[in-house]
Nucleic acid binder design. Sequence first.
RNA 1: GGGCGUUUAGCUCAGUUGGCUAGAGCAUCUCGUUUACACCGAGAGGGUCGGGGGUUCAAGUCCCUCAACGCCCA
Length: 1063
Amino acid sequence: MSAPSSTPNELAKTYAPAEAEPEVLARWEAANAYAADPTAPAPDGTYSVVIPPPNVTAALHLGHALNNTLQDVLVRYHRMKGYPTLWMPGTDHAGIATQTVVEKRLLAQGTKRLEMGREAFVEKTQEWKDEYEATILDQLQSMGASCDYDRTRFTMDDMCATAVRHAFFVLFRDGLIYRGKRLVNWDPVTRTALADDEVEMEDVEGHMWYLNYPLADGSGHVTVATTRPETMLGDTAVAVNPNDPLAEAVRGKEVILPIVGRTIPIVEDDYVVMADPDGDAKAQIASGFLKVTPAHDPNDWDIGLRHDLPVINIMGPDGGITDQYGWDDVSDEAQQFVGLSREDARTAIVAWFETNGLLDRVIDYSHSVGHSYRSHVPIEPWLSDQWYVAVTDDRLRGSALRAQSSDQTDSMPEGVSPRGDANGDGDLQFQPKRYARTYQTWHENIRDWCISRQLWWGHQIPVWNRLVANDVATPEVLAALDGVEVDVAQPVDSAWVAAGAAHLARRVTVDEIEESISVPPASSLGRLPRADQSMDEPQLVAAIEADGFVRDPDVLDTWFSSGLWPMSTMGWPWPEDYPDTAGLLDTFNPTSVLVTAREIITLWVSRMVMFNRYFLDGQVPFTDVYINTFVQDGHGQKMSKSLGNGVDPRDIIHSHGADAMRFSLVQMSTETQDVRMPVDIICPHTGEAFTPTYITTSAGHTVAAPIQDSPAGDGRQMVSNYGIAAGIAEPTAEIPLGRNSSPKFDVGRNFANKVWNATRFALGNLEGAQASAEAVDMAAPTTTFVDKWIVSRLAETITTLDAAVDNYQFNVYADTLYHFVWNDFCDNYLEAIKPTLAVTPSQQVVLGSVLDAILRVMHPVCPFITEALWPAVSAAKVGNIAGLELPASELAIVATWPVVDASLIDTDAAKTFGRAHELATEIRRLRAARAVKPKQKITVHVDEAIQNLIDAAGGMIETLANVGTVASSSGELPQVSSSIAFEGSQVIVSDLVEEVDLGAEAERLDKVIADLEGNIKNLEGRLSNEGYVNNAKPELVQESRDQLVAANADLEAARTARTALDT
RNA sequence: GGGCGUUUAGCUCAGUUGGCUAGAGCAUCUCGUUUACACCGAGAGGGUCGGGGGUUCAAGUCCCUCAACGCCCA
């Protein structure tokens, strides 16, 4: 371990985070200070947090820095409080997101995923993952996140993979996972299905086309309105509202679908909006007839089900028009459209209708279109076979809803059984509370969760499928499907089940059956009950494959593995297989709090609750969910990777230091407000911070221009972070990267420097102080006033900080620290003790102890500087204060949180300090108003009441206001003087300067008098109001009366002084 | 369309159950380099709390309404 830094004289004049931080990190690492010990005694319980695993797609930005800083504050605080503490770190493989960026990079290198093959691609992606995982972990450490890094997990590592396979198997076996042919949200660029909440609605300026479809009997036509004319090739009906007068004329008729020539029915369905020029927006643009395309629109799909319509899929996985996926009545006329992209097909089909006189009209129409959150292209509702988790089942959705605290939600939606006294019911709380409602309403409208993704990067679905014809299906399969409709899966009781697998079958068509077998992971197979134990997992898989089953090529939705995170990271389901995880699950799940962003309440929080409760006997994964604020850039845009406006925390650490970043972020964390962060660029040529020039992207976002000119104006340039993120610019030697910074972090940097220098002062003055064996008794008469006061303030501060942490009021924590350290400790206490410290041993003890306590309470927010100063401050301590427990410790990170006796809160001292400080301030105001030189010692003449106050303050007033002499005002008064009205007494001040400027003095007094008169008028008005006197709290009324008396006395004094001037 | 949030000093934000003359940091102005700190100290100026209405002795705070902005869900 490195030598403790320092005699005080060695401390530099300014805190240099870049020097301190690596050294401090090395000390923590050497001491293994982050390690969680599940076997440690836990009389008050344990404290644990799992990190929201960042995606391995890119480096962390300030939003992550905020999220992780808050977690670290909580973790460090509770560690100091003596709880056995675990902060579990890790990263998320982020299936589609990662695959997308890797594919993009491959494309830039001139190769493609499909050319490489699955194995090579996964290997390439693994390399990418390794790179970013390393970056992320490095970022976390640099910002001081005290995670137990030895336990770092990845959602695709072996431990997590086992959990995923086990969970999948159990849900499959229990009937909570099924496969079905459904319309999915299809991303034609990444060519995968998306979950409902991976689709982002965006407003699009489009058109509404009105197409004429001729009636089959030649009696005319109907006009359908559509925003998607290209899908008409797959129309299988036209729908009209049965209540619509238009319905009468076409009832029972058919139309000939143009281009295709397909004869399709007109069906009646009250989903259809009736045309009404005076109705709402939809009715105004409706034609009354709806084209029905079950294969390419979710609403049409539902209509199709109601009317038993055929489903004709005219598109391929790329969104192009094709006859390869179920379209078998392609006419000669339609042939020309096959092979077109969906965009080209739209143009061509509209042109065809126009040419053939069947285009009724076109209007501009702005509407919402679902876009892939990943590729940002419009999603295509597309028919395909996908795996689903039946989250609508009461065992999942109901369980998630019942987990909520009854304080936060009152009712359950229909069909959900009520909250009972089951394990975990009511254990989940949101903070801020309003997010409970978001959670609740989302669950009320939930649909089954599509979990299969047509990707290569992820957990391959542990299912083996085969298609069999009716006539060759096994008897047990036929038995299971006897009388069961198409597309409804049923469990099969087969030999595979006896061998430990689970077996489902479903009719894909009337004469074709799909069988699916899920195999548990090897570690589960032997442990779960099974009749036939002859095969281990590889043998079982081999046997299944030998029987014609093929492994499903799809992978699972990323959130399936993330949803298991609080369990999988702790060794579930078989912690005994991983000796390092011994005791974790029992000790640390449920975790104490999940700190996360509000956007993933649905994607992630809900799924963790469902899974944890389902697999761990109802137990919630965490008891508290704290939703942290968003970090926005200076233009109010969310910081994000995709926008390219994210700021790397390492840039801020570079410009301001990690503690400064942390402190500022904590201070910004309020309950309601998102934080706006104007971002500067630091010129790499000159070191100067400047506001960048901005450009507007095609998506309408304001971002820093990719290339920036140096503010030096000499033609030198730099690349902005946006330039790199958007792939527009690469830094070079001549045009290097301009790091980001923001003046928002100056507060934190200045604060750290203030603490550094206050410590320097204290250490310098404690050098050579005699150690005292006996603890200082704050109540003793010999203890000085300012010492009593500062210790009392310390005690109050600690109480406030405790409450702030309990209530997740992070900004209160930061502000309380700032005020106590800067104003109370530095501005008042240190200034006040300067004349007496050297000759007052008890004061030396108090100074050392208070400073020690300050480092402790600051540590959760500013771990580096407190750790850097810790050895010197510990060494300089010369004694203890009775009632304040600050046991010695090698490191600040493992020091105990200060324990204060309530008796140290001295309300008398606080009151006296308030009065004394006010008097000192009045004198300072006078000095400033009269331009008295700071070094000039003045004389005050006071009456008995003020003399008592000055005595009680024990020299503080004299020191803070630089008063040389205190004399009695009943004696002879000097000719040259000024006066202050204070608490009804007149304080005469002299020795200001050689000569008093009578004009300036008169002006000053006139202002004082005017202020007081206004104040008195206000108070009199209030007190003459009967309503106030009768209804307000009596102590409030009394307070007003006292104030009026004091103000009148002050006014009297000020007038006397003013009159004296005129004579 | 539904829900949530925001609107307070030039800027970024605090403001527990209604109750002292509405606060902080930065910026601005004046003075100051007194051996902890100019990343500092002392002092000052600056706000009809988004608009309108209401409840109340009393409204930044509660209610209604309008407007703007942001986010989530459809």
